[in-house]
Design a protein around this nucleic acid. Structure first.
Lengths: 211, 211
DNA sequence: ATTACTAATTCACGAGTAA
DNA sequence: TTTACTCGTGAATTAGTAA
């Protein structure tokens, strides 16, 4: 899964700068013999995961990448558990949603991957700071990827979507990869105009349940 | 380090509800023989990391805690690289800081572990939503633990502290384990009255650099 | 001192199979 | 079916040393 020595070196900061550690010290730290530590270091070196220079060790970029991937996978697995619900006040956005959601590049993907044709416009929900951790948690989840594309010389970035219900109506939260909003605004897309359909206006509290 | 089977079960959501998986299926998923999977499951069961009931498996609280700790340690090690800086507006808190920081249980520990005698009062900095991710990152780091205690029949919870500089003056960020503040307020303690020392007032932008 | 080789040992693995 | 036992094999680990 993840190598003990790499984990140890990570904790010692060996991905930042070379760390002075003998094979015996490493062996001691991982509860193995000096011989095992020596052998493993040779193997890790051959795999290109670390570099040595007169009894200093430094992790390579490759090792860090590998550790990061494991970390992300673990986090996703651990979090994939709980239901996520938000509630916040309806606010008016910058009206760009209408423009983006009239781009066929987005529309066709949303139809295909989310199963509805989006109303041209986003609903913006301002969530309190207490829900921001949940927002980060959600974003760490797998989600549905809407790819970016180019159209009329302009570039449209990719985004991630999560199916949800807004006051019990089918919708989706979208996280554009390059968003103009801060962490406290959720952007919602839906097959119809939620404002008129749900009879809601700015300031009303809106509930959002991810599934 | 982290067990393949536990990782697999986590991905299958076995920490939420019992998951139906035979030893052969598990063996297949981790590229081992059915016999090895069986043996490992027995061992994990003996260690109290999972429970079985007619070919369903469920991870225990202990297993989840263990995985969480590994995840946090990994994240902390990986992130330990970058400097963390905050900047935000000085705000007035609930004035409880003064009360807490006159408790000898806290004062003596702060003297010992942070190396200064705290001015009785906290400085509260309101950070923008864009810095909340950094705040979570900081909290995932090791930090200096200030233990909880009881005094005069009242319970004082533990907290974590991180040495920092406020506008170049020595101080520390504290995270009470049970905080009244949301994620957007940082509480700072220092050896002197920072408001008068730095000549700052509510609304002024304050810079905080962790090291 | 430290590292890494070779040889001895131990322990993890999977085949076969019973329950 | 599935699970888990025994046991032979070999890979992983350590002891003993050389460099």
């Amino acid at each position: 899964m993840i190598n003990d020595i790499i984990f140890l070196l990570l904790k010692k900061g060996a991905h930042r700068e070379p760390v002075r550690m003998t094979t015996s010290e490493i062996a001691n730290a991982i509860n193995k013999s000096q011989q095992t530590a020596s052998r493993e270091l040779i193997m890790l070196e051959n795999e290109g995961l670390l570099e040595r220079r007169k009894s200093t060790v430094k992790l390579t970029e490759k090792a860090v990448k590998q550790a990061e991937n494991i970390c992300i996978a673990l986090r996703a697995a651990l979090n994939a558990a709980g239901e996520i619900k938000f509630s916040g006040a309806l606010v008016t956005g910058l009206k760009e949603g209408r423009y983006y959601l009239s781009q066929d590049g987005y529309v066709s993907q949303i139809k295909e991957k989310l199963g509805f044709s989006p109303f041209p416009g986003t609903l913006n929900i301002q969530i309190p700071a207490s829900q921001i951790e949940k927002r980060l948690e959600l974003r760490a989840r797998e989600g549905i990827r809407i790819g970016g594309f180019e159209s009329a010389g302009r570039e449209f970035g990719p985004m991630k979507a999560y199916k949800c219900r807004i006051n019990h109506t089918q919708a989706a939260i979208v996280f554009p990869e390059r968003s103009h909003h801060g962490l406290n605004v959720l952007e919602i897309i839906a097959p119809l105009n939620l404002r008129t359909h749900l009879k809601i206006k700015d300031g009303d509290t809106v509930h959002c349940e991810v599934f």
